[in-house]
Design a binder for these strands. Structure first.
Lengths: 240, 240
DNA sequence: AGCGCTTTGTGCACCCGTTCACAAGCGGCG
DNA sequence: CGCCGCTTGTGAACGGGTGCACAAAGCGCT
């Protein structure tokens, strides 16, 4: 998303963004395979399990080196290690969750955090009535202490699970504390300096995208409950 | 995937997938503007509020018609209507949530559902102890009744919030009932016929992607002597 | 040891999406 | 009434990602 990232120190890190987004999927599948005692796997089988094409998978893996044996496949455990290393999962990341409402509550209890080197270091909320309560074995702290908490626990990833109006302010404070990665669950557009990475998870958007395709599918063929199908045909006047 | 379903993208009225993914963002911003009484807005201002480039925004909007007045901008209310229509939000969609654990609980209480024509029609869980309990004013039904519920309520979107091992089976049953859109929160790869749309929301993957970038940023600044210079001097001011 | 089967790794062509730059169009002002 | 400045809409160049097809490279069997 960076407009022009000028000088790239030709070291590792040249992994395409689309590949990075798929590596965690491979990692998860490989984890199950390793647990099942599978020693090696071919790109075809792994691709099928991960829901991608085999050529794409091979190209993805080729970006992090030539691990894999021709005629045999990939060593599962070794590949797990290499992908983990490429993703930076050999390090430990401390996460702070801001906003302990329904969603924050669910996130705090989410088992997926601990499994890959992520540790929920703090739960923070602005509501004084929640402060002191324990969720997932952790005490909720007040938003006023955010800076102190981030500093003490060396939080490197902030998870925003607040209502939308509070999101930008919380984000700004996180960034001011030196947090450079933010995962935003609030339905709001966050503006940050481009040294900071923001990823958003937005349920409402996902539903609306599904709605679009649902409408698309309904327009084509089977029984359509209401009328209102004419809007399908778009302005043919302009586009010749 | 299969080239045969190419009709879905790139036809008349065929809005590019990337554009569809951004339309909900525009819609949200426009909603706030409309509430604030703003009558018209320029592509530049709207793009800034949505966090995209203005050219991209104009091209996105151009895909759904030539709404907008040169020299003036876009009529906010009219644009809200047009985007809503393009996304299919003029229709009503009934959603079933399968799996009422921490996450399903949070989803059931999520206010964003009702706001855009989505209605949570059913909560379903496999745990008999949860059945009959009320969450968000709705009674939890047992998984055995899934087919009946989907049929009775004409559910068109299924939200899977089960543990990973149950996800594929639940998905298969949903598909068998005629559900053609699935939103998957379980950390599992779902395989469906290509008539069905699946979108996945995976917290663990998002964190791992952030970890990758975090590692990349830290690559030059940790304990490297002499190289303590921040990786990029392109510091942009936060929204002041 | 050699041969053939299997699978990786990759060069290449294609396609989607992004960005730039500008002509066309509309409202307001003199 | 005509000109001017502003904004939209879009043609065209550009870049990244995807899929195909194949050469290179191990392994096992004979």
């Amino acid at each position: 998303m960076s407009p022009s990232d000028g000088a790239r120190s030709g070291r590792r890190g040249g992994i395409p963004e689309a590949t990075v987004a798929r590596l965690p999927v491979y990692l998860r599948v490989l984890g199950s395979l390793a647990d099942g005692g599978v020693p090696t796997i071919s790109s075809d089988a792994l691709a099928a399990a991960a829901g991608v094409g085999s050529a794409k998978l091979r190209k993805d893996l080729s970006h992090l080196g030539s691990y894999g044996t021709r005629g045999v496949g990939y060593d599962v455990e070794y590949l797990v290690y290499q992908i983990s290393r490429a993703l930076g999962l050999t390090q430990h990341y401390r996460v702070a969750i801001i906003g302990v409402g329904n969603l924050g509550h669910a996130l705090a209890n989410y088992a997926g955090f601990a499994t890959r080197g992520f540790e929920v270091a703090a739960l923070i909320d602005a509501d004084a009535r929640l402060v002191g309560q324990r969720v997932a074995g952790m005490e909720i702290r007040h938003l006023d202490e955010l800076e102190q908490i981030v500093s003490d626990h060396e939080v490197s990833i902030g998870v925003i699970a607040t209502p939308a109006p509070a999101a930008q302010e919380v984000c700004d404070r996180l960034v001011a504390c030196g947090v450079t990665s933010v995962l935003n669950f609030a339905p709001a557009v966050l503006s940050v300096p481009d040294t900071v990475d923001v990823r958003k998870v937005d349920l409402s958007i996902e539903l609306q995208i599904l709605a679009f395709h649902e409408q698309r599918k309904a327009a084509g063929g089977t029984r359509t409950p209401g009328a209102a199908v004419p809007d399908d045909v778009r302005s043919a006047a302009v586009s010749a």
